[in-house]
Amino acid sequence: MKTKVYPRFSDKQTVYLNAVVKDPQIEVGDYTIYNDFVSDPLLFEKNNVLYHYPIHSERLIIGKFCSIACGAKFLFNCANHTLKSLSTYTFPLFYEEWGLDKTNVSWAWDNKGDIIIGNDVWIGYGAVIMAGVHIGDGAIIAACAVVTKDVPPYTIVGGIPAKEIRKRFDADVIERLLMLKWWEWPVSKIKKNIPYIINGKLNDLIMEHDR
């Protein structure tokens, strides 16, 4: 895990996220960055991970080399008023007022599970990721999108609710990128191959992988 907070010496708006988060229920891979030009990015847990209460032990898992833009939000299960009740009012949450058993507080909302973000994912400005959503490696979430369903690898989604706009690459390229998993390579190997990565030279990258 990285301990360096700021990737750039003069930039206090961008942080390596796993050097910032403290909650053990939030896991972030190396080199994933968060940028915030409105608030202090060091307050990511408070400002961006919402309704994340201990009662569920739910997790936010974010992979390596992700880019998370200002204002992106991760909205957890306690924001979901249950649809199993005849009322959306959260009676179990106010157990003292209504003389209810306090062990049934979680009946007030539906539990959709963890939020899991893959590697090399770009989450745009103001996007909202809802509880239970899994986002695949290499996906892109457009600005202000509200993601309510899983997003396949290397897929661009946008809108409210977010829908597929297009794939980033054809199926063969996606398959090979998922096989390569370059983000799991040693740092020295990644550095050596950055020119191939940023210039889209997949065949050269595959040759390096096979060496």
Rank of each mutant, 00 (worst) to 15 (best):
K149G: 00
Q13V: 01
V128E: 12
N80M: 04
L43V: 07
R59Q: 09
M1D: 11
A145L: 06
G138N: 13
V146R: 00
N47P: 02
Y95M: 01
D210V: 05
V173N: 06
T88I: 11
N199P: 03
D137L: 10
F91Q: 04
G138H: 04
A131N: 14
R8K: 15
I115Q: 09
I140V: 08
I140D: 00
I68A: 06
F9R: 05
Y16M: 07
G118Y: 00
P186C: 12
K191A: 11
V5A: 11
E97V: 15
G71C: 05
N104L: 15
P24H: 11
I140M: 13
K181N: 09
K12C: 03
W109T: 03
S87D: 13
S188M: 14
H81S: 09
D114K: 11
V121G: 00
Y89Q: 14
A79H: 06
T32K: 03
N47Q: 12
C70P: 08
D150F: 03
V187I: 10
K167S: 08
I135T: 12
I123F: 03
D170L: 06
D114R: 10
Y196K: 08
N80L: 04
V133W: 00
F76M: 13
D204F: 12
F65S: 05
V49I: 08
V121E: 07
A19Y: 11
V147Y: 01
A162R: 01
F65D: 10
D110N: 14
N80E: 06
I55R: 14
Y89P: 02
G200A: 11
Y125N: 14
I206G: 00
Y31G: 04
V20D: 02
F9M: 10
L50D: 01
A69D: 10
N193C: 15
A69R: 03
A162G: 05
C66G: 05
D210T: 15
N47Y: 15
N35G: 09
V133S: 00
A72P: 02
M1V: 08
L180N: 08
L17C: 08
H209L: 12
Y89V: 00
A131E: 13
K112H: 10
Y154C: 02
N203K: 14
N119S: 14
Y34T: 05
T82H: 00
Y154G: 00
G136V: 01
G29E: 02
Y125E: 09
N48T: 11
Y51C: 13
W98L: 06
L43N: 08
E97D: 13
N119K: 12
V21Y: 07
F37N: 15
K201I: 14
N35V: 04
E184A: 15
C70Q: 13
V173I: 12
G159V: 09
T148Y: 01
K163I: 03
F74D: 00
G200P: 14
G99V: 08
V28I: 12
L17G: 00
E45N: 03
D170P: 09
P54T: 05
L43G: 09
L100C: 07
K201Y: 14
G63C: 06
V49Y: 03
I194T: 14
I165L: 00
D150G: 02
F91W: 15
G124A: 15
V157E: 01
K2G: 15
H209K: 13
V133R: 00
R168L: 02
E175D: 09
K73L: 12
A145Q: 03
N48Y: 15
P195Y: 10
W109P: 04
N80C: 06
K192M: 07
F76H: 04
D170I: 13
R59M: 13
T155D: 08
V5Y: 06
H209W: 07
V187A: 04
E58K: 15
